[in-house]
Amino acid sequence: MAEMEGQPEVEPRNQDKMAREREHAEDEWKSWQRGQVRNTLHLVSAAAQWILLLACLIYLGIDSLQPSTSRSDEVPWTHIRYTGKSIKGVAMNLTAEVGSIQIRNGSIMITCDGLYLVSLKGVNLFPDLEEEDSLKLTLWKTDKTTSRALCKQTVQDSGNAVDLTTVLYLFEQDNITLWISANATIEDLSFSLVLLSPFTHCRG
């Protein structure tokens, strides 16, 4: 009779144990599934990174194989020093000291459209005739169809010096020359011209 009374207590304990084991198995299954999802995400992320890296390498390789343009990357500029005689009505015979802009027959040959910084400095500019009380230096531009003055600088007899800095927009195939209003003796005249703006159109 006592054995029969103890059996109902054993059966619920077995059921509880089975329930706990089932819950534990389900937890392990869910944990394994979460691990699989994480592994899959890591693989997808790694694959995406490798694809992106490969795309970058392909892009760089193609870019490096592109033919180089004929346009030089060197910024057009010139620096000129002039010492000697000037003649009224005749362009000064400029020659470049350093720089990449070509000078032909005293004319600066512009090969790129853009804004240029122009600097004209000098001392000891003496008119040959005493009646001349001042000298006028004129920067002149000539293109295919027209010719005009770009800027002027007056040199007073009391100072005998010139100091001009300005910015001008010049075009491809412009020829730039420097003129003086009278016969004069010039010592150490410095003339610089450099392209400031990015290349817009350049003659190759």
Rank of each mutant, 00 (worst) to 15 (best):
Thr138Lys: 10
Lys136Val: 15
Ser181Cys: 01
Tyr116Lys: 00
Ser72Leu: 04
Leu117Glu: 12
Lys136Phe: 14
Asp63Glu: 15
Leu189Ile: 03
Arg148Tyr: 13
Ile51Glu: 10
Ser119Gln: 11
Gly122Ser: 00
Met92Asp: 01
Thr166Tyr: 05
Asn93Tyr: 06
Glu97Val: 04
Glu74Thr: 08
Asp174Leu: 02
Ala2His: 10
Pro12Ala: 09
Asn39Gly: 12
Gly106Arg: 01
His24Asp: 14
Asp163Gly: 03
Asn39His: 14
Leu94His: 02
Leu195Lys: 12
Gly204Thr: 09
Ala2Cys: 07
Cys112Trp: 03
Ser45Ile: 15
Trp32Glu: 09
Met18Arg: 12
His24Cys: 14
Ser181Ala: 01
Arg13Trp: 14
Arg104His: 09
Thr145Met: 06
Gly99Ile: 02
Ser31Ile: 10
Ala47Glu: 07
Asp73Thr: 05
Gln7Pro: 08
Arg13Gln: 15
Ser192Ala: 07
Glu187Gly: 03
Leu60Gly: 11
Trp77Gly: 09
Ala47Pro: 04
Glu97Leu: 07
Ser192Lys: 06
Leu57Trp: 07
Ile108Glu: 00
Pro12Cys: 05
Glu11Gly: 03
Ser119Trp: 05
Met1Arg: 05
Pro67Tyr: 03
Ala47Lys: 09
Ser181Trp: 02
Gly99Ser: 04
Arg38Met: 11
Ser190Val: 05
Trp179Cys: 00
Met92Ile: 14
Arg38Gly: 08
Lys85Gln: 15
Lys30Asp: 15
Leu54Cys: 11
Ala55Met: 10
Asp27His: 13
Asp128Tyr: 02
Gln7Val: 14
Phe199Arg: 01
Thr83Gly: 02
Lys136Asp: 11
Lys141Arg: 10
Thr40Gly: 11
Val44Lys: 11
Ser147Tyr: 02
Thr165Val: 15
Val90Leu: 09
Thr166Arg: 08
Ser134Arg: 09
His24Lys: 12
Asn183Cys: 01
Leu193Arg: 00
Asn14Trp: 15
Lys88Thr: 13
Leu139Pro: 00
Glu130Cys: 08
Ser190Trp: 08
Tyr116Phe: 05
Gln15Leu: 13
Glu23His: 08
Thr111Phe: 01
Thr200Gly: 03
Arg81Met: 10
Val37Arg: 15
Cys112Asp: 08
Tyr59Ala: 09
Val123Phe: 07
Lys141Asn: 07
Ala184Gly: 02
Ile110Val: 08
Ser158His: 06
Ala47Thr: 14
